[in-house]
């Protein structure tokens, strides 16, 4: 027995290479489908096993631009198969009675997804006086159903700079050409459902794709005027600009509005509803369900180098 060391998420390395290093949480999970079998009259299991697995690495990050820029498939996803390269998750080893092992040392750990990963993001969110966050997922899809798609590799040196690329916070929201007043939080949820398939008795997930994409924006405001603006019967969306402001490095507040450095989500069709209120300081929730404006255009686009304007 003995206590080896604490390991911390260090980076996810994408082909290119592109690195994500700003995590607030990392959640590797094999999603094992375990089973037990017993003779009919026996209460305790007499055979235990695993019938299937669908490995994934969920993570929350503040590195919005890097992740959003990676997602070239309708701005929400990217697949790295069958020859797209390896995606690796690195864990950095801590030092007992010290800080961290050197980056170049071979004492760290790595998980590989070789030519089989899919990256997608699930939500973008921010609150007033808080740092914006993106929640994303890496799904490991076996190339043949028999090959483990997420492989643990010990004794690895670390890749990727120990660096902070950018930080964002809540930004203003323009709906139908006018700013929403008193915005205190905003989020965009992709609300995906998935096709997760395998066959012929294989154990590992072999096919993974997005079945449905039902994006919805949720805005919280202290302005009771939203009831007047959008009415109790709702209003059709004609334009949405949802911003996440880039914060300055070393000085107060965000980068100037006119600088093309902010994140902007744009949409043109949907349904605006003022759903509910709560709290002694009234907080009112506005939702906007987004639609495709035409057959060839996605429900929203993301610009990660935008100025802020109504």
């Amino acid at each position: 027995m003995g206590f080896g060391a604490v390991h911390r998420p260090h980076a996810i390395a994408f082909p290119g290479p592109t690195y994500i290093t700003q995590f607030t949480d990392v959640r590797p999970n094999h999603n094992y489908a375990e089973f037990v079998e017993r003779s009919a009259s026996e209460p305790a299991p007499q055979w235990t096993g695993v019938i299937a697995a669908a490995p994934e690495i969920g993570f929350d990050s503040r590195q919005l631009k890097t992740i959003l820029d990676l997602c070239t498939d309708q701005d929400v996803a990217i697949g790295y198969a069958p020859s797209g390269g390896t995606v690796s998750l690195y864990y950095r080893k801590g030092v007992n009675r010290g800080l961290r092992e050197d980056v170049a040392s071979l004492v760290h750990d790595r998980f590989d997804m070789a030519n089989n990963a899919m990256l997608y993001w699930e939500s973008l969110s921010a609150e007033q006086r808080s740092v914006a966050q993106i929640t994303a997922m890496l799904k490991a899809v076996s190339t043949d159903g028999a090959t483990a798609p997420l492989v643990h590799v010990g004794s690895a040196a670390l890749a990727g700079n120990v660096a902070v690329s950018h930080v964002y916070t809540l930004g203003p929201v323009s709906v139908n050409g006018a700013w929403v007043d008193s915005v205190i939080s905003a989020r965009l949820d992709n609300n995906f459902t998935f096709d997760a398939e395998d066959e012929s008795g294989n154990a590992w997930l072999q096919y993974y794709g997005i079945d449905e994409h039902n994006p919805k924006v949720t805005i919280e405001t202290n302005d009771i005027g939203v009831f007047a603006d959008y009415g109790s019967g709702g209003t059709a969306l004609s334009s949405l600009k949802l911003y996440f402001r880039k914060l300055q490095h070393g000085t107060l507040g965000p980068v100037a509005d006119a600088t093309a450095a902010h994140v902007k989500v744009t949409a043109t069709l949907g349904t605006i509803l003022v759903q509910e209120g709560s709290g002694n300081k009234g907080r009112f929730r506005v939702t906007i369900a987004l639609e495709k404006p035409d057959a060839t255009t996605q429900p929203f686009v993301v610009d990660t180098a935008s100025a802020i304007a109504v």
């Binding site: 139908n176 006018a178 603006d229 004609s238 334009s239 949409a267 935008s306 109504v310």
Partner: peptide
């Protein structure tokens, strides 16, 4: 309040037609 709605809609639709490369700086 919504006097600019039509202009904003045209502007947004134009933005949505931009290629990804033009939206990442």
């Amino acid at each position: 309040k919504f006097a600019n709605a039509e202009l904003a809609s045209k502007d947004a639709l134009k933005e949505m037609k931009k290629p990804k490369s033009a939206r990442i700086g």
